[in-house]
Amino acid sequence: ASVAVIAAGTQGNIFATSALRSMRFLQILRMVRMDRRGGTWKLLGSVVYAHSKELITAWYIGFLVLIFASFLVYLAEKDANSDFSSYADSLWWGTITLTTIGYGDKTPHTWLGRVLAAGFALLGISFFALPAGILGSGFALKVQEQHRQKHFEKRRMPAANLIQAAWRLYSTDMSRAYLTATWYYYDSILPSFRELALLFEHVQRARNGGLRPLEVRRAPVPDGAPSRYPPVATCHRPGSTSFCPGESSRMGIKDRIRMGSSQRRTGPSKQHLAPPTMPTSPSSEQVGEATSPTKVQKSWSFNDRTRFRASLRLKPRTSAEDAPSEEVAEEKSYQCELTVDDIMPAVKTVIRSIRILKFLVAKRKFKETLRPYDVKDVIEQYSAGHLDMLGRIKSLQTRVDQIVGRGPGDRKAREKGDKGPSDAEVVDEISMMGRVVKVEKQVQSIEHKLDLLLGFYSRCLRSGTSASLGAVQVPLFDPDITSDYHSPVDHEDISVSAQTLSISRSVSTNMD
């Protein structure tokens, strides 16, 4: 405001104040949320940038038409019409005319000016109207692209899951042992070998009828009888010197917790746990005396209480009078009846079946994303299906024409109403129809010849004498029936064969 007042002088105070007050009108834009329509302006900018070359070309040609039209109309009207006294007036008329506004304040009066105005109007309006069409088509394409992008975003994750499931299904095939990355992934998420051994031990116990592997080994086996189970490696608790092959000598807290839970599941009659010990102070733990958990001091820290809870689970003690015997301790020893080589084939089979199920689920979810969402998608899918159906029908028609023997030239002739090819031409065609016709002709010829021969033979049998045999009239074959199959017997006289037959029969009768 200060700059405006200084620039306008003393009389500019009122002007500056009114100008600043008129800017209050811009507050109405906040009512229509114009300040939060950044996406709309961004869309407009992207459309203009995408079609910038077309817009520049249309505007450039339109500007050239405007300059030439205004100049030529000015030359034609400057002497006869006072409205075109300057080139600026003519340029104003050209702008209003070519933009199809047409105020009518300035019009050419001479015939030359009117002809020039009409010609440049028809030429220039087309170029001035091009930017509107370019922007409209650009907006339509952009909206369609955003629509497809939205659908693509919805299909991206199911497609990625389907590709991942397909690759993992491919890589978990037993015949592709060189693909090891997927197996490394499952090695990292699978439970430890100790848990798998416990699982298979329970399965084997159920197969043995509820007997433990130790009891199965204690059962008497006759001499020479084959053992029911192959000899396997035996594993004891981590306190002993022997372990399962492939295990580490260090046992983690999870393994100890699972070991304690498995020992508690063996039965309360074979294992008696004394009350857990509780320390009397955060600094020292008295293991010899058993106290109640309700006497825990409230001033303990979080670490002390955590250690106390761990001691409740991981440090059970047995009383002296209830101490288990050596046999019970041997039964409680952890027996590992299986090795990694025995378990891994079954584990890989389970993983393979899981990968198949996940692949089928991913495939079903991806197919669900291909379903249409709204009416536009339904129409688009219907149009695509219609085009596909037309293509299939056209391909089927082409194959039928190839089989029947109607080529493209014959199809055009039928469409024009011309006469089709004759039967002889159809026979000569190298097509399925021509071959079928040729075979039918040959079969008819053979059938006719057989009928003639059978009739001749029956007449010979009825006559009974050589004289009557020679008097029999043998009809000749019709050459038209034989089609294109020409037998060497067709052109010979059958009477010669009949005479030869009669001579042979007379000779045979004389010999008798």
Results as ranks from 00 to 15, higher is better:
Ser188Ile: 06
Leu454Ser: 13
Leu314Val: 13
Gln381Glu: 02
Glu247Lys: 05
Gly209Glu: 05
Thr266Pro: 04
Glu247Gly: 11
Ser483Cys: 12
Val232Ala: 11
Gln335Lys: 05
His386Arg: 12
Val436Met: 14
Ser262Tyr: 11
Ser262Ala: 09
Ser445Phe: 13
Leu390Arg: 15
Ser319Phe: 02
Lys363Arg: 14
Ala362Asp: 10
Leu461Met: 04
Tyr382Phe: 15
Gln297His: 14
Met511Leu: 03
Ser262Phe: 06
His491Asp: 05
Glu289Ala: 14
Met259Arg: 00
Arg399Pro: 01
Ala329Ser: 13
Ala384Val: 13
Thr241Ala: 03
Phe308Cys: 11
Leu370Val: 02
Ser192Pro: 07
Glu337Lys: 07
Met174Ile: 07
Ser319Tyr: 05
Leu190Pro: 13
Val443Gly: 14
Val404Glu: 05
Gln286His: 08
Ser431Ile: 10
Ala323Asp: 10
Thr234Ala: 04
Ile503Leu: 03
Ser463Tyr: 06
Lys363Asn: 05
Asp490Tyr: 04
Ile393Phe: 01
Leu190Phe: 11
Ser262Pro: 06
Gln335Leu: 11
Gln335Glu: 07
Arg250Pro: 14
Arg176Trp: 09
Thr180Ser: 10
Arg364Thr: 03
Ser497Thr: 11
Val436Leu: 11
Thr234Pro: 06
Ile430Val: 09
Val496Leu: 06
Val427Leu: 06
Arg256Leu: 06
Val347Leu: 08
Glu195Val: 10
Glu440Lys: 13
Pro213Leu: 08
Glu440Val: 14
Pro238Thr: 08
Lys419Glu: 10
Lys332Asn: 04
Ser261Gly: 11
Gly417Arg: 08
Lys332Thr: 07
Pro475Arg: 06
Ser383Pro: 15
Gly252Ala: 05
Pro345Ser: 10
Pro345Thr: 08
Cys336Arg: 07
Val489Gly: 11
Val361Gly: 06
Leu360Arg: 11
Lys315Thr: 14
Gln397Lys: 02
Glu447Val: 15
Ala219Val: 09
Leu396Gln: 02
Ser283Asn: 15
Arg462Pro: 05
Val350Ile: 07
Thr241Asn: 06
His236Pro: 08
Ser506Thr: 04
Val496Phe: 05
Pro282Ala: 11
His272Asp: 14
Thr369Arg: 02
Glu425Gln: 09
Asp418Tyr: 06
Ala225Pro: 07
Asp410Asn: 14
Arg258Pro: 13
Gln271Glu: 04
Gly407Arg: 14
Leu453Arg: 06
Gly409Arg: 10
Ser502Asn: 06
Pro488His: 15
Arg265Pro: 09
Ser240Asn: 12
Pro268Ser: 15
